[in-house]
Design a protein around this nucleic acid. Structure first.
Lengths: 344, 344
DNA sequence: AATAGTTTTGCAAACGTTTTCATTTAAACC
DNA sequence: GGTTTAAATGAAAACGTTTGCAAAACTATT
């Protein structure tokens, strides 16, 4: 071993092997045009031979960017976030950055901790989900001056840049669709809105629209279910298995809607004749399920891509200041909804 | 600003503010027991006031661990990987590590690049999916001496540590189940096995079991579909929409199976009377879909957890050398399979 | 053959920590 | 109160890079 009894070769080892100075080696990586082709070749050979891999940590210490972006999500294991994370990560990668990811399980206190942790790693930029965060989290971000983008929710007056949709609008659109079809007896199944502004806003939008059209929802038709097919299926079983039941169910997201479809099928209900089911999100498979699910499309992929583009631009100084990007929602009328057939 | 016209306060700023030496500040973080409580309090106050956040990069330079583990996956946006990633990440977090993630889209060349990239970031350990990797990738890992664990596949003689299942066995079990029910006309829908040893092994196991029981599968009953409900549904539509069709379809994974269920439903076929459908994986929702899907359970969560535990142990020196951990598979007989009812 | 200009290279300081070793301060003992 | 021992602190080197500046080595021009 020509390496000084260390495990990993460093730039000095390379310099020695190539018989040039350290600076030349460094330059050969960072400003190849400044070093003579012959020398460069010698260096490359040395790198190859020694298996040298640059040490980002040392570069960071020198004030260079770390080349990492931190992403903090409630959970990775979730159809819609997974799609988002994938496109976010892909776009980051395309632009030469790597993603550091942390999940907090819908716990805003933990989210704060995760943000700190990522900052210790000197991420160049941060992204998190939604606009509801602890004061401490916002304070931290502002104090540290780390470029940050909030994903998923849109608000014109957000404290940080955001790329997302108006979730209240999504709720309104979903309700509107059912209203337009003539439904008056609507059941609601949403996730717990605590620390989840997406769910909260959707629910509020839904209630608003329903209320302003004179529709009132009995308390026992308003269910709460976590983000899980199994739980949603279970939760609405009792609601559906009664003579007096809603003609339509509006779900806080497509996963819940999927659970409801299965529950209805299980009970032998015909969709949409006996029951209309409305989702929000348009997750993968929502168009293929039988019957295909009517839903409000949220363009996860595009949101992820734009968010990544935005954060990289902020980091590289190609844009600055707080900006808000609104992504369009659209109604997808598929086979799970229709006019109510039962006469009251 | 008391900070020397820099954006982020460093340990020196803290030392000044607390009127102690740099060493004391550092010690107060790393060996709190070695510094007088009163001093520690003074330091903590200074940290608080200045908003100091430790710089991992500088620590890494000093030979400390980076506290990061790199995970390289084909794709994040995939039910089963998402579950795995989540549990892997959670366990890592529990043990004080952060996950750096990269995806390569089933491209082994890109995988190599991702591994390199993560090594530049000086991850303490690495994890990737399956045991099929480019020679370059294996060489890199061995040369750099970065602790690595292969997830998902088990092989007693693997080049690196692994935590996973025997995918060939999964294929065999699935086929066995269909055989046991009395099926002789079986259709196969699997993902493309190139660069995907999980799919490859499952398919091989399946074919083996079928073959050794004298079952032959016509070429046009062997379909290939990517990991996608929509594509799987589309792909098998033609296969199913014929008078002469298999009595059972065995799918390379549950997502494909889900697509097949929808296709069958769409065509008005009764499951399992007209068609038995068998999956592999046991993804979320597989037990709730109507009819619930018979499948081979692969314990993704447990695999992720064990893999994380293993890599951390390797990194912290609590274990070393190559080890192979086999996770158990189990047959889940649910409602999508039954004995064939049609008489030939 | 000498000069001016250009290209290529090297030296050394700086980045923010940790840690060894030495020194100071406090506590404990007779 | 002086000595011994233990606890707390500080000074400085080291980690692996990058980069401004200066020196050296070429090229081109006369």
């Amino acid at each position: 071993m020509s390496l000084n009894h260390k495990d990993k070769p460093d730039i000095i080892d390379v310099a020695k092997a190539a018989r040039v100075s350290i600076s030349t080696v460094s330059r050969s990586f960072n400003h190849p045009d400044l070093v003579k082709p012959a020398t460069r070749k010698r260096i490359d050979r040395a790198v190859q031979k020694l298996g040298y891999i640059r040490n980002r940590a040392a570069q960071v210490m020198h004030g260079k960017r770390s080349g990492t972006i931190g992403l903090v999500v409630p959970t990775i294991d979730n159809a819609i976030f997974a799609e988002l994370i994938q496109s976010f990560s892909d776009e980051l990668d395309r632009r030469g950055f790597t993603m550091l990811i942390a999940s907090h399980g819908f716990d805003l206190e933990r989210e704060y901790l995760m943000l700190r942790k990522l900052m210790e790693h000197r991420v160049d930029g941060l992204a998190f989900i939604g606009l509801e965060h602890s004061d401490a989290a916002y304070a931290l971000i502002e104090q540290q001056g780390v470029p940050t983008v909030a994903i998923w929710n849109y608000a014109a007056d957000a404290r940080v840049s955001c790329v997302g949709v108006e979730n209240a609008e999504a709720g309104r659109l979903a309700a509107r669709h059912l209203l337009d079809l003539g439904h008056k007896d609507v059941g609601l199944i949403f996730p717990n809105p605590t620390g989840n502004d997406r769910a909260h806003d959707r629910l509020q939008g839904t209630l608003e629209e329903l209320d302003s059209n004179g529709i009132e929802i009995p308390q026992n038709w308003r269910l709460e279910a976590p983000y899980s097919i199994a739980d949603a299926k279970r939760a609405c079983m009792s609601l559906l298995d009664q003579p007096r039941r809603p003609t339509a169910i509006l779900c806080g997201n497509d996963i819940i809607a999927q659970g409801v479809i299965y529950a209805a099928k299980h009970l032998g209900l015909k969709i949409p004749q006996d029951l209309s089911i409305m989702g929000i999100g348009d997750f993968k498979g929502s168009g293929e399920i039988e019957p295909s699910l009517s839903t409000i499309r949220i363009p996860a992929k595009s949101i992820g891509l734009q968010a990544a583009a935005h954060i990289v631009d902020s980091v590289t100084g190609q844009s600055n200041g707080v900006s808000a990007t609104k992504c369009a929602l659209s109604l997808l009328e598929r086979d799970s909804t229709a006019a109510p057939s039962r006469l009251e």
